[in-house]
Design a protein around this nucleic acid. Structure first.
Lengths: 232, 232
DNA sequence: TAGGCTTAGTGTAACAAACACACTTACACC
DNA sequence: GGTGTAAGTGTGTTTGTTACACTAAGCCTA
């Protein structure tokens, strides 16, 4: 059998770190599920599960996300592959972790689907203990997000289609963990030219209503292509 | 059996993209091996192979690198996990790719060890056709290297302990694919303060000998820790 | 040993980007 | 109509980035 190689194989799983941002209280959220079965029954964990034999890894991640949280059409990016011995009590399990950024609105109600007891958003500063090495995975996802913010406008992914400049600023302040100057922030955004102002304003706010903006996706892709630096 | 989950599993492999830099002709090199066995017998490929059941993934990458090229003590960083269906004619194979940057001197003579017919450095602009999807993997490694250069001083990893400023500049010019101004380049390096000048000079050169420098590793780690930007 | 070849090494001025900073406007609610 | 809250807007200062050209040192050869 020259074209096969049979040997004991590690099991292969996927895990998803899905982030969202809530501008109203400047909190970064992560999507967790409560496990139905042992090991770690009833513990909170990242959505994920076993990769099937005839299924692309990313497809498996999307499938598991849907089966456990009902979320669909989410753009996943590969994060890291975790494979240390002993990370899973069931035996040798290697897990490919993915991460995603989504607007909170699109995802307001994760529904615990067939494979989870519950599915919920948690603020990253109020996390429950997590199953397996999922805390490590989550922390790496956070690190990646904080790195990504420096060369790509993450607002595209974490905000609704229309948003105020203050919302965008709050997002950057939360992810970067710093205070930014309102005028300088707006000046830089204006220079980048990836924002389009709309004629719409915030509704039902007890103060002056902010103008809403959208991202100019074409211009954005052009800039990405030219290696533009989106640091703010 | 609540704590096991048996099902058909993809095979798990590792592949290594090892880069080196030759300042004398400004060429970036990659380490390839010639395959001993089918599939792709006699083709050139990235060093790599199957992960054993009781072995960490990175350990497997190091082991394969040694078995095929005799290279040891190389710092590997995870690159990406490739798992599309059909990437290996033997069946479902998922591969975790690693990459490494090493000084050419340390690695001058890769020796085809037990598991390869040959092992050789190739200039990245004169590559042979590669087995499997190894060209994709290599290109991703290159992309990562070009990204990394912008926030970490890759000279640390790709140059010998002592080097001239011109060597370092040639490295940056090659990886970034641009020409840099000598005076501005040196000015920025001086400001970073990660270089220590030694009392030594180049030997046996048919022109004025350049002073040799070393990196200040402590200062470097301090700066990395503070989120310093090493762009040049 | 003088002249030529090659790379090393060095400073300044113009321009662009980053930063610090405070008041007025609009709207809702009481 | 007064109060509370967040929106929106410009300038001067400092800092970093760029462009640019000559002298120094050592080897080679005629």
């Amino acid at each position: 059998m020259p074209y096969t190689y049979e040997y004991p194989r590690p099991a292969l799983t996927v895990d998803c770190v899905v982030f969202a941002f809530d501008p109203s209280n400047k909190s970064l959220k992560v999507l967790l599920i409560q496990r139905l079965a042992d090991p770690f029954k009833d513990s909170w964990a990242l959505p994920g599960g076993f990769v099937e034999m005839e299924e692309d890894i990313e497809t498996a991640a999307k499938r598991e996300l849907k089966e456990e949280t009902s979320m669909e059409n989410i753009f996943l990016e590969q994060l890291y592959t975790f494979g240390t011995l002993g990370r899973d009590p069931r035996g040798r399990v290697v897990s490919v972790a993915y991460y995603a950024l989504i607007p909170l609105q699109k995802a307001q109600t994760p529904i615990a689907a067939s494979d989870a007891k519950a599915a919920k958003w948690f603020s990253i500063d109020k996390l429950p203990p997590l199953a397996f090495d999922h805390n490590d995975i989550l922390q790496l996802g956070l690190q990646r997000l904080r790195g990504k913010v420096r060369y790509q406008p993450i607002g595209f992914e974490l905000l609704d289609e229309k948003f105020s400049l203050s919302d965008l600023q709050r997002l950057y302040e939360t992810v970067l963990g710093v205070q930014l100057d309102k005028r300088n922030f707006r000046k830089k955004l204006a220079k980048m030219g990836v924002l389009i102002e709309t004629d719409e304003y915030q509704q039902n706010v007890p103060h002056r209503a902010a103008r809403l903006y959208r991202f100019d996706k074409e211009k954005y892709h052009q800039l990405i292509h030219d290696g533009f630096n989106f640091e703010l």
